[in-house]
Structure formats: C-alpha cells, structure tokens
Design a protein around this nucleic acid. Structure first.
Lengths: 165, 165
DNA sequence: TATTGTTATACTCTATAACTATA
DNA sequence: TATAGTTATAGAGTATAACAATA
C-alpha cells in the first residue's frame, strides 16, 4: 500500500507530488537528469567493454594523440593515480598504448591503436544514437540550447573564496 | 611543462581544446555542470550540518509530513537500508523525528521538528542564493528554460528493454 | 627540488542480503 | 507470505600519501 508502483528505474506517480520542494532547484533536476544519462550510458557502453570514464579517456586521447597521463588526469578531472587503472584497462583491451617519450623518459605518450580507432567510430555513433533517444522529447534546437545553457553554468569566484556572510 | 595551470577546481585553458570530442555530447556537459552544482552544494550545506542527501530528505519530509522511510527511499531513489543512516543523521541533529504509527507498528512516520522547520527556511534560502550565483550567466528566463529542458529528459521504453541490434 | 607514473591504503557512497517484528 | 526497518557486509569509485625513476 501507498507508493507501491515499483517501476524498475524510479519515478513513481507519487514522486512528482513528493519532491515538489526539491524541483524548484535546477540543481536537483540536473542531478535526476544526469542520473538518467549515466544509467543509459552504462548500458550503451557495456557492449563495447567500456565504462563512462574509459569512454571519456578514449575520446580525449583520440582528440589529443600523444597526451601524457598527467595531462589526461587534468582534462578528465581525475587524480593521476586513478588514471593508471583507466589506462591499464584500455591498454589491456588493445584500445590504446603507452609509448615512451625520448625527450622525457618519465612520461608516457598515449596513443589510440588502429583497433581503438575502429572502436571509437562505433562507440561515438552508439552514444550519439542513445542521446537522440534520451532527448527524444526535445527538438534539435532545444537540445542545442540545453547544451549551451549547461556550458554556461559556472562557479563564481566569490563562491570559491568561501567568504560568506 | 604543458598543462600546468593547476587551477583548484579544474578547467585549464587546454581543457577546452582537449575535450572537444566529448563536448559534442549533452551528457558530458551535463556531468560537468552537475559536478559544479554538486561541489557548490557541499559548501553551501556544510555550515548547516547537511549533506546533499540529508538536504533532499529534509525537503521531502517537509513536503510530505508523516511519510514512511520506505516511501522516502522511493522518492529519493535510495535503498531502504541507506535511508536508515540518513534518518539517523537528521534525527540525531534534532531536525526530524521517527514517530510510531498506531495502524501499522512496523512503520515510522517521519516528521520535521520545529527546529527542523527553522533550519529548512534558512537552508532553502541559502540554496536558492547559491543557485543564483551558479547561474549568474543565465537570465531568469534561461534558468527557467534549463529547468524545463532538464525535466524533459527521459529514458525511452525501448532503451529499457535493452533489445538492441 | 620538482614531476611522472605507480602502488598501497583509506574513505565515501551505495547496494545486497539476512534478520526482526509486525502485518 | 509479505513488508518496514534494521544491521552487517561488500563493492564501486575516488582521494591521499608515499615511493622510484627521471628531470
């Protein structure tokens, strides 16, 4: 009895009523929407043996061949130590390779293998398709606008300084 | 040398160049934006002794006095076992109370205390202010549109069925 | 002395499963 | 038999700190 709708991925009928106070916040809606995207991405990437992080890493190395693990960690906003496992995973799958750099023997230059490039082409398409499905209620113009608006969210310097009241 | 900008919370100059392939995806932008909101929320809520989850729980109980822990877990999309710690935390802080229900002695009716209501008023305002700061580059109309667009993201039934190719 | 990649470790968050008391 | 709340446990995911090799 009560909220017994048990739909596999949430959002019962009552929910819309019950999170009224939360839905006033764009941040809350962002979280819900992000969770949907995240769940969807997991399913989309699974057949390719990728996780969201490894997909992102592959994308970055595709766009910046020869990038170092340190720089990759900067771009992905992940600690260097975390990048190791990610690169291990992708290298183990034959998707990318660590190449020694003559000028600086501390560094690994990351490059995508031929198999990795073929994988990227397929995955990129798959993710594009899944985004299309995810945003099927939005017009192309609205999707573009959503992308634009999301890109304009930023933390103001005053917030960073945590000098409040 | 290379990407040495070391800004405390990410987004170096190179980044914009390097995640080009990822920025085509609204999902990626959603993740970045969500992470900004999340970081900001943590700082905003800390002075009130709240975390994002406990803030959300408080909001839901405010809007649905007497709600059970099970129903709360449905609304928040968290397992019942996880709700226990959240309610413990809020009850320990004197923000809400578990009340026995005569008709069903298995159930707890969650209610916000007077102190909890005062807290909510302050926190709600604080979060509203921080969202204003976060979306300072957007006009009120754009914020409303962002909220609307985010609310229209959904997983299509076909995606759920994972019946692909 | 600083930086790259690495390892080991700890911490946070959440899910799973089993238990109890009620229904 | 099923459900509400609880507990204990395990698993992701990520951060922190220390280390070796190199600059």
């Amino acid at each position: 009895m009560s909220a017994s709708k048990r739909s596999a991925n949430a959002m019962t009928v009552d929910q819309a009523v019950r999170d009224t106070l939360l839905r006033q916040f764009a941040g809350y809606r962002m979280k819900r929407a992000y969770l949907l995207v995240q769940e969807d991405m997991i399913e989309t990437l699974a057949p390719f043996g990728l996780r969201t992080v490894t997909f992102s890493a592959l994308a970055v190395v595709m766009g910046s061949p020869g990038i170092s693990q340190s720089d990759l960690s900067d771009v992905l906003n992940i600690k260097r130590s975390g990048v190791v496992a990610i690169v291990d995973e992708l290298e183990g799958a034959g998707v990318l390779k660590r190449k020694p750099v003559k000028e600086d023997r501390r560094t690994n230059a990351l490059t995508v293998t031929a198999a990795g490039r073929r994988l990227w082409d397929k995955v990129e398409k798959a993710v594009q398709d899944h985004e299309t499905a995810l945003f099927c209620d939005l017009s192309p113009a609205e999707i573009a606008q959503l992308r634009d608006l999301l890109g304009r969210v930023r933390r103001t310097p005053s917030t960073d300084l945590e000098a409040e009241e």
